[in-house]
Design a binder for these strands. Structure first.
Lengths: 145, 145
DNA sequence: GTGTTTCCGTTGCGTCTGCAACTATACTGA
DNA sequence: TCAGTATAGTTGCAGACGCAACGGAAACAC
């Protein structure tokens, strides 16, 4: 992080907003669930939308290194939230499936997330939110070519 | 990071955009300067705008822990980019000043940053960029109360 | 077939990070 | 004045991360 985000106010905001949201989320979780929060939950959320993907897919969608994904999946597998199954046609790859316990945890996190989001977006017009999202997406695409 | 950013597309974008920009920045730096990039440069950028602040101030402005700032300032001091001087009226605090070498490094990073920013913002109307920034700021304020 | 290249996942290593505990100093109120 | 509290910075510790190197498996060349 940093250098460039310290130059440009818009990008600085993106970083700060992300940090702030994460902190809020963590505060409002019960002690027994805090160890589940954090970077691993992004994978759970991903899997709830598309199950049975490869670790490499999770890496690209989250913009993290595949090594990091390996370790996250290790953790989630130990916690019983996901399952690793070998791909029948390609012995290199492993397909990741979410378990029912994994879905439960996700359902538990969702309302918390929605509350924080509602607070963040209050008193902002829907149209302006849409523009904001479109601009960020465009910037991302511009850099990602 | 994550949980919530995986739920909300706008917040997911903020995280991804920040990561992408950092990666780009790092790619375009010469080998001998890459070790200067990274989280420490945010402090340099901060100091170029307001010199002689406390470490705690740097922590709050960057939303990082004061322990992290301590270690960053250690690094920057070793590299000769900043100076720690005791506060004359409060023996607990130390004032951080940027050195001329620090300013030089910052001036070196600036054009690189502007290039990447120009690429990111190309073909986006100024007005929409302004709206985007305003929305993010508002969301930040909403959460930060 | 064999050799080369490419891809998936794992592991080792170093860096960045926050939290908690600590020291030293400043402040506050009886 | 003195006890209690708050604050600035440091350090130990553990978690998360990326990069580089590796092994196994596929794909492609010839």
């Amino acid at each position: 992080m940093s250098t460039i985000t310290s130059i440009d106010p818009l990008l600085l905001l993106t970083i700060r907003l992300g940090r702030l949201v994460t902190n809020k989320m963590h505060q409002q979780l019960g002690k027994e669930d805090q160890h589940l929060m954090g970077p691993h939950m992004g994978i759970i959320a991903d899997l709830c939308q598309q199950d049975g993907v490869r670790q490499q897919d999770l890496a690209t969608s989250s913009l993290k290194d595949k090594a990091t994904i390996t370790r996250s999946v290790n953790f989630l597998e130990q916690e019983g939230l996901v399952m690793r199954t070998p791909d029948p046609t390609d012995r290199r790859t492993k397909r990741i499936y979410i378990t029912s316990k994994g879905r439960q945890v996700y359902q538990k996190m969702l309302p918390l997330g929605h509350t924080i989001l509602a607070q963040a977006k209050q008193e902002i017009e829907a149209e302006e939110l849409a523009i904001c999202q479109r601009v960020l997406q465009q910037m991302y695409n511009n850099l990602n070519q």
